[in-house]
């Protein structure tokens, strides 16, 4: 049927394959090698140092500092984002009025660039001109923060005790709408007859949610878990734009991505930075594989 098929195959594949090899495959392969060198970027020679960069990394307290922050995000963000968005999606799916309006509005943060969001929120949190502090002051909530040992209303991004909570909250704010739309789409695919049958059996909405919606959404939840988990390992743009790098000796907002960026492009320790990047990649890969494995269940067919 197809005559001279290679006259089509080769020119059609060539642009994509060449660009991909040069700008994607080559840099990744090169990174694996660079992480074994003590390259400083200036000289052409790259002294091979074996696993030295990795040993150094294990002994670098700032590496651990950044990694712990990533793990804290990983512990809290996916669970908060997914439960909130699932909850929102379920409520919107309850044949309520204005459901279209809510659906459109909650998605707003998704179409604004993460940098705009970061700048916007750094002013929401701003201690003098921001709305959050003045709102909390107006509500006389100082006592609440004093329970946790603050002198008054925290300065959020400026305080190392609250900076990660402040950034994490922005990520929840930004991501909830996305996962909500994802869950809504999956919910709409569930046949109405399931719910009708349950109603006849006397199931209330709470039962319907736990016994029909959740089990049938399992695949989507798995995807959401992997996606939001990977997001917790990124956090580069939002951290970079909300926190001035090097503003504090204790590096309270560092994550692996910002730390490795600094090591590479501000301190010119390219070999070392690449070793951190390789570790980041391996962590992400392990995380995705683990999530898929742990959450694996018999798929419910319908």
């Amino acid at each position: 049927m197809y005559k001279h098929k290679y006259r089509v195959i080769i020119p059609f594949l060539a642009p994509a394959v060449i660009l991909y090899l040069v700008f994607v495959i080559y840099p990744y392969a090169r990174s694996m090698y660079n992480s074994l060198t003590s390259w400083k970027g200036v000289s052409a020679n790259q002294p091979f140092v074996g696993l030295y960069n990795y040993v150094r990394m294990i002994n670098d307290e700032f590496f651990w500092n950044a990694l712990i922050h990533n793990l804290q995000y990983l512990l809290f963000l996916p669970i908060i984002i997914i439960s909130l968005s699932l909850f929102l999606a379920f409520m919107i799916s309850q044949r309520i009025r204005f459901s279209k309006f809510f659906r459109v509005t909650f998605f707003f943060p998704q179409v604004i660039s993460i940098i705009s969001i970061g700048v916007l929120w750094s002013y929401v949190y701003h201690p003098t001109i921001g709305i959050l502090t003045s709102l909390l002051q107006a509500a006389h909530l100082e006592w609440f923060f004093q329970i946790f040992g603050f002198e008054g209303i925290p300065v959020w991004v400026g305080d190392e005790r609250t900076v990660r909570i402040a950034i994490g909250a922005v990520v929840v704010w930004q991501a909830a709408g996305f996962y909500m739309v994802l869950f809504l789409a999956a919910m709409e695919a569930i046949p109405q007859t399931f719910y009708e049958a349950a109603i006849i059996d006397g199931a209330n909405r709470w039962h319907q949610f736990w016994n029909i919606t959740i089990p049938l959404l399992w695949d989507t939840m798995q995807t959401a878990l992997v996606f939001s988990g990977l997001g917790a390992f990124d956090m580069f743009a939002i951290t970079r734009v909300m926190v001035v790098s090097g503003s504090s000796q204790t590096r309270p907002a560092d994550v692996l991505a910002t730390y490795l960026y600094e090591q590479a492009f501000e301190a010119s320790r390219f070999g070392y930075a690449t070793a951190i990047a390789v570790s980041l990649f391996l962590l992400m890969l392990t995380l995705s594989a683990l999530t898929m494995r742990v959450t694996r269940r018999e798929a419910v067919e319908y």
Partner: peptide
């Protein structure tokens, strides 16, 4: 290619 984070390619990409 979808598995890899862009962070991993940055340094070689810059020099390339």
């Amino acid at each position: 290619g979808m598995l890899f984070p862009v962070m991993l390619a940055l340094v070689p990409l810059f020099f390339l």
